Simulated scan of single mutants.
Amino acid sequence: MSAAAEDETGREPDYRFTLANERTFLAWIRTALGLLAGGVAVAHFTAAGTDPRVRTAVGALCAVLACVIAVGAFRQWRRVQTAMRRDAPLPRPPLVPVTLTGVCVAAMLSVALVAG
Protein backbone atom coordinates (compact mmCIF):
# COMPACT_ATOMS: atom_id res chain seq x y z
CA MET A 1 0.00 0.00 0.00
CA SER A 2 1.44 3.38 -0.96
CA ALA A 3 1.76 6.29 1.47
CA ALA A 4 -0.94 8.21 -0.43
CA ALA A 5 -3.34 5.28 -0.22
CA GLU A 6 -2.54 4.83 3.47
CA ASP A 7 -3.43 8.48 4.16
CA GLU A 8 -6.80 8.06 2.47
CA THR A 9 -8.01 5.18 4.66
CA GLY A 10 -10.46 5.98 7.42
CA ARG A 11 -12.78 8.95 7.65
CA GLU A 12 -12.13 12.57 6.83
CA PRO A 13 -11.20 14.39 10.07
CA ASP A 14 -12.78 17.68 11.11
CA TYR A 15 -11.11 20.37 8.99
CA ARG A 16 -10.18 22.35 12.12
CA PHE A 17 -7.95 19.51 13.29
CA THR A 18 -6.40 19.20 9.84
CA LEU A 19 -5.66 22.93 9.82
CA ALA A 20 -4.19 22.73 13.34
CA ASN A 21 -1.96 19.89 12.18
CA GLU A 22 -0.80 22.02 9.23
CA ARG A 23 -0.08 24.99 11.51
CA THR A 24 2.04 22.76 13.72
CA PHE A 25 3.92 21.51 10.64
CA LEU A 26 4.55 25.10 9.54
CA ALA A 27 5.79 26.04 13.02
CA TRP A 28 8.38 23.26 12.80
CA ILE A 29 9.37 24.46 9.32
CA ARG A 30 9.83 28.01 10.68
CA THR A 31 12.06 26.57 13.39
CA ALA A 32 14.10 24.72 10.77
CA LEU A 33 14.45 27.88 8.64
CA GLY A 34 15.54 29.87 11.70
CA LEU A 35 18.20 27.30 12.53
CA LEU A 36 19.39 27.24 8.94
CA ALA A 37 19.66 31.03 8.84
CA GLY A 38 21.48 31.00 12.18
CA GLY A 39 23.90 28.36 10.95
CA VAL A 40 24.72 30.34 7.83
CA ALA A 41 25.14 33.53 9.87
CA VAL A 42 27.48 31.89 12.37
CA ALA A 43 29.54 30.19 9.68
CA HIS A 44 29.98 33.30 7.53
CA PHE A 45 29.58 36.40 9.65
CA THR A 46 31.37 35.77 12.94
CA ALA A 47 34.49 37.72 13.83
CA ALA A 48 37.66 36.78 11.99
CA GLY A 49 39.52 36.09 15.25
CA THR A 50 37.26 33.23 16.32
CA ASP A 51 38.29 29.59 16.07
CA PRO A 52 37.19 28.42 12.60
CA ARG A 53 36.64 24.85 13.82
CA VAL A 54 34.10 25.92 16.44
CA ARG A 55 32.49 28.36 14.01
CA THR A 56 32.15 25.59 11.40
CA ALA A 57 30.85 23.13 14.00
CA VAL A 58 28.10 25.51 15.15
CA GLY A 59 27.10 26.35 11.58
CA ALA A 60 27.08 22.72 10.48
CA LEU A 61 25.17 21.58 13.56
CA CYS A 62 22.48 24.21 12.96
CA ALA A 63 22.19 23.25 9.28
CA VAL A 64 21.99 19.51 10.00
CA LEU A 65 19.48 20.09 12.79
CA ALA A 66 17.38 22.21 10.41
CA CYS A 67 17.32 19.36 7.89
CA VAL A 68 16.39 16.78 10.55
CA ILE A 69 13.57 19.00 11.84
CA ALA A 70 12.20 19.68 8.34
CA VAL A 71 12.10 15.98 7.43
CA GLY A 72 10.77 15.04 10.86
CA ALA A 73 8.05 17.70 10.62
CA PHE A 74 6.74 16.21 7.41
CA ARG A 75 6.79 12.68 8.79
CA GLN A 76 5.01 13.81 11.98
CA TRP A 77 2.39 15.75 10.01
CA ARG A 78 1.65 12.64 7.98
CA ARG A 79 1.54 10.37 11.06
CA VAL A 80 -0.88 12.69 12.85
CA GLN A 81 -3.09 13.04 9.79
CA THR A 82 -3.28 9.25 9.42
CA ALA A 83 -4.04 8.81 13.13
CA MET A 84 -6.86 11.36 12.94
CA ARG A 85 -8.38 9.58 9.94
CA ARG A 86 -8.32 6.28 11.82
CA ASP A 87 -9.55 7.69 15.16
CA ALA A 88 -6.32 6.41 16.69
CA PRO A 89 -4.30 8.04 19.48
CA LEU A 90 -2.00 10.78 18.23
CA PRO A 91 1.66 9.75 17.99
CA ARG A 92 4.21 11.43 20.21
CA PRO A 93 6.38 13.98 18.44
CA PRO A 94 10.01 12.77 18.31
CA LEU A 95 11.10 16.26 17.25
CA VAL A 96 10.85 17.77 20.72
CA PRO A 97 13.80 15.91 22.32
CA VAL A 98 15.82 16.10 19.08
CA THR A 99 15.32 19.86 18.88
CA LEU A 100 16.05 20.35 22.58
CA THR A 101 19.28 18.36 22.41
CA GLY A 102 20.46 20.00 19.19
CA VAL A 103 19.77 23.53 20.39
CA CYS A 104 21.50 22.88 23.73
CA VAL A 105 24.61 21.53 21.97
CA ALA A 106 24.60 24.50 19.58
CA ALA A 107 24.24 26.87 22.54
CA MET A 108 27.21 25.29 24.34
CA LEU A 109 29.32 25.52 21.18
CA SER A 110 28.24 29.14 20.79
CA VAL A 111 29.45 29.88 24.32
CA ALA A 112 32.80 28.35 23.38
CA LEU A 113 32.81 30.50 20.23
CA VAL A 114 32.13 33.70 22.15
CA ALA A 115 34.50 32.85 25.00
CA GLY A 116 37.34 31.86 22.66
Rank of each mutant, 00 (worst) to 15 (best):
L61P: 01
P52H: 10
P13E: 05
A112M: 13
L90R: 15
T18P: 00
L65H: 04
P93R: 07
T101D: 00
C104T: 15
G10T: 09
M1L: 09
D7M: 14
G39I: 03
L36D: 07
T24G: 05
P94N: 08
W77R: 15
V114P: 04
R75A: 10
V111I: 15
Y15S: 14
M84L: 15
T50A: 12
A47G: 14
V103T: 11
A70K: 05
P91Q: 10
V114H: 10
R55A: 08
R85V: 01
T18K: 09
V71H: 02
V40P: 02
A27V: 09
A4D: 14
P52V: 09
L90C: 00
I69R: 07
L65I: 12
T46P: 01
V103F: 04
F25R: 14
R79F: 00
L90K: 13
A66W: 10
F25N: 06
C62R: 00
V80A: 06
A66Y: 09
A47S: 14
E6L: 13
P13T: 01
A27Q: 10
T9K: 11
A57C: 01
G102V: 02
A83R: 03
A66V: 10
P13G: 06
F45Y: 15
W28C: 11
V71S: 06
A83N: 03
R11I: 12
E8N: 10
V103Y: 01
G38M: 10
G102M: 06
R23T: 04
R85T: 02
A63R: 09
C104Y: 02
L90N: 06
L35E: 07
G38S: 13
C67M: 11
A83F: 02
G102T: 06
A47P: 09
S110C: 08
D87V: 02
A70E: 04
M84G: 00
N21M: 04
A43E: 07
P91K: 11
L90F: 00
T46C: 12
A47H: 12
G39T: 04
P94S: 02
M1Y: 06
A70V: 06
R30E: 10
R85F: 00
A88S: 11
P89E: 12
L100N: 03
T101P: 00
P52L: 07
C104I: 12
L113I: 05
R30M: 12
V58H: 04
R86A: 11
D14W: 11
R11W: 08
R92D: 05
V58K: 03
V80I: 15
D7L: 15
T18V: 15
G72K: 03
D7I: 08
E12N: 06
Q76I: 01
C62G: 01
H44S: 12
L95N: 01
G59S: 07
P89Q: 03
V64A: 14
F74Q: 12
R78Q: 12
G116Q: 07
A63K: 07
